[in-house]
């Protein structure tokens, strides 16, 4: 079990690689747990002010202003998304799905100053409790841009490329 590394000392690219690895993994696991448990406020607090939360309709290689995406949130839209979930009458998540996801294959793709780009894979089991009680499996790759903020990591960008992003999907009203 890794303890949270001390990130107050200096820029991320001056940390010992194992310490940075541990800090990044701890962040991803925590983010996954908060999403799994629909802890909306705490999950939202993981973001920096400049939000880029993107679930593309395919590989993340296209112009988001020309082609449609499942989710393409800036700070304003993500806040609306979270507030809607918090009303208690977002019926597509009332009650919230029970979920557990496994995050793995974590790779640090780039470390520059106070930012680190991280790739990881996930498998998510979702029990859709709103109508059919169907167990749904989601899988894909996440690419996070993490940034040092007040001695801790926060996420500025999260891009989720679903394995089945080119296909019709069931309700995706939870936090991916």
């Amino acid at each position: 079990m890794s303890s949270v590394a001390d990130l107050t000392a200096g820029p991320l690219d001056t940390l010992d690689p194992p310490a940075l690895d541990a800090a990044v993994a701890a962040f991803l696991y925590r983010e996954a747990r908060l999403a799994d448990e629909s802890r909306y406020e705490e999950w939202l607090a993981l973001w920096t002010d400049d939000v880029h939360y993107w679930v593309p309709s395919g590989t993340a290689d296209y112009d988001r202003d020309r082609r449609i995406s499942f989710i393409n949130d800036n700070r304003n839209r993500l806040t609306t998304r979270i507030r809607q979930l918090q009303t208690g009458v977002r019926y597509a998540q009332t009650p919230a799905s029970t979920m557990r996801r496994v995050v793995s294959n974590i790779e640090l793709l780039a470390v520059t100053g106070d930012e680190v780009e991280v790739g990881s894979n996930f498998v998510l089991y979702e029990l859709s409790l709103q109508a059919t009680n169907e167990l749904r499996i989601w899988a894909g790759r996440s690419t996070h841009l993490l940034r040092r903020r007040e001695g801790q990591l926060a996420m500025a960008s999260k891009v989720v490329e679903l394995v089945n992003a080119s296909q019709p999907l069931p309700n995706l009203a939870f936090l991916l």
Binding site: V55, D65, R66, R67, I68, S69, F70, I71, N72, R77, T80, R81, Q84, R90, Y91, A92, Q93, Q130, A131, T132, P168, L169, P170, N171, L172, A173
Partner: peptide
Amino acid sequence: LRQSEAAMGPAGFLLPDDATASERMQV
């Protein structure tokens, strides 16, 4: 495009609730 993403699709602000109502009708 931005309006469309907000309203429709499985992660939109409207359509997933319509889906849920229809699915409960089916059940």
